[in-house]
């Protein structure tokens, strides 16, 4: 008992005397949230491995992609590597307003997420990519579940898209069916490819899918602030969000984080390693880092 008390005092003194003097990163783990699409998971692990190479300890928690900003704000988790404008700007801005979270870096990548179709669809419905042409072809996309309306395959519910609002606002003859996961989207595209069936679904860039299945986004009326009968922004940002306390607690790691910036091709490659190659995200991260030493080494040094 006594022994342990001494030990504790010893550790405490060491902690007090060493940490402020060197202004080094705290030994507490940096907690990185991971979501349910591949590139984000791989990128999180890449950033995590970069931190680990600096000597930080890192932990990953899975988190909901919308509520994560509240968690970052409160310091429960410490950063989020892919803030997509189209999907998360609202949650991110709301959290920023309350304070505690900021954008630490902006990726080179330009993002777009919207209704999308693979090329073989265009053969069946030549008026594409115009949305009105799509609407006229609606019957072509009908499935047993949707009856005589066309099926728009949406992303998982928790991505909180306003597709059904758009359907109403533009009076589209489509029903929104949410896939359970990103993988379910690709499975459906693959199945449609085999039978050459027209399909319209939610997709985004940067994403590996563009490389596998060439296709285009449907052109809806251009996006404006607060509009309902319109598409998503065509050139959205991709940012890294961080907790306000991070620069102080892990100055070294934060410094690296601010230099991180990936482009569309790099992000698509990350997703491809997992979704097509079938690697585990950890392995995909390692593989990507080995291939792309020149990209990330300068950020760390």
């Amino acid at each position: 008992m006594k022994h342990r008390a001494f030990l504790l005092i010893g550790v405490a003194t060491m902690a007090i005397t060493t940490s402020p003097a060197l202004a080094a990163d705290s030994s507490d783990p940096i907690i990185i949230p991971i979501h349910n699409w591949s590139s984000q998971i791989v990128m999180s692990h890449i950033v995590g491995q970069m931190f680990e190479s600096l000597g930080n300890s890192v932990e990953f928690v899975s988190a909901d992609s919308q509520s994560v900003y509240e968690a970052v704000r409160l310091g429960d988790v410490h950063l989020q590597v892919e803030v997509w404008e189209g999907a998360f700007a609202a949650s991110f801005d709301a959290a920023r307003e309350r304070g505690g979270i900021h954008a630490a870096a902006v990726h080179d990548a330009v993002t777009r997420e919207d209704w999308w179709y693979p090329t073989w669809t265009k053969e069946a419905c030549p008026g594409l990519p115009d949305w009105q042409a799509l609407n006229e072809c609606a019957a072509m996309f009908a499935t047993p579940e949707t009856g005589d309306r066309g099926r728009f395959l949406g992303g998982p519910v928790d991505w909180l898209k306003n597709d059904h609002i758009r359907v109403e606002a533009l009076d589209l003859n489509f029903a929104v069916v949410n896939a359970g996961s990103a993988a379910a989207l690709w499975a459906e595209v693959a199945a449609a490819e085999r039978t050459n069936t027209p399909i319209v679904l939610f997709n985004w860039t940067p994403n590996f899918a563009e490389a596998v299945w060439p296709g285009e986004f449907v052109e809806f009326p251009a996006w404006e602030e607060g509009c309902k009968a319109c598409g998503n922004p065509a050139d959205g940002y991709l940012k890294i969000a961080a907790w306000d306390g991070m620069p102080e607690k892990w100055p070294g790691a934060y410094d690296v984080l601010t230099r991180v910036s990936f482009n569309n091709a790099q992000i698509a490659e990350m997703a491809r390693l997992v979704d097509i190659e079938g690697l585990d995200p950890e392995d995909a991260a390692t593989a990507w880092m080995e291939e792309n030493q020149d990209v990330w080494q300068p950020w760390v040094n």
């Binding site: 349910n36 591949s38 998971i41 899975s62 988190a63 909901d64 968690a71 993988a183 499975a187 979704d275």
Partner: peptide, 21 residues
């Protein structure tokens, strides 16, 4: 609870199911 960020088997299962693996 993997839906609210609980790590472990549940999270892994959720990921694998979502990836249809």
């Amino acid at each position: 609870a993997s839906f609210i960020g609980m790590p472990g088997l549940g999270q892994r299962l959720l990921q694998m199911l979502q990836a249809l693996r």
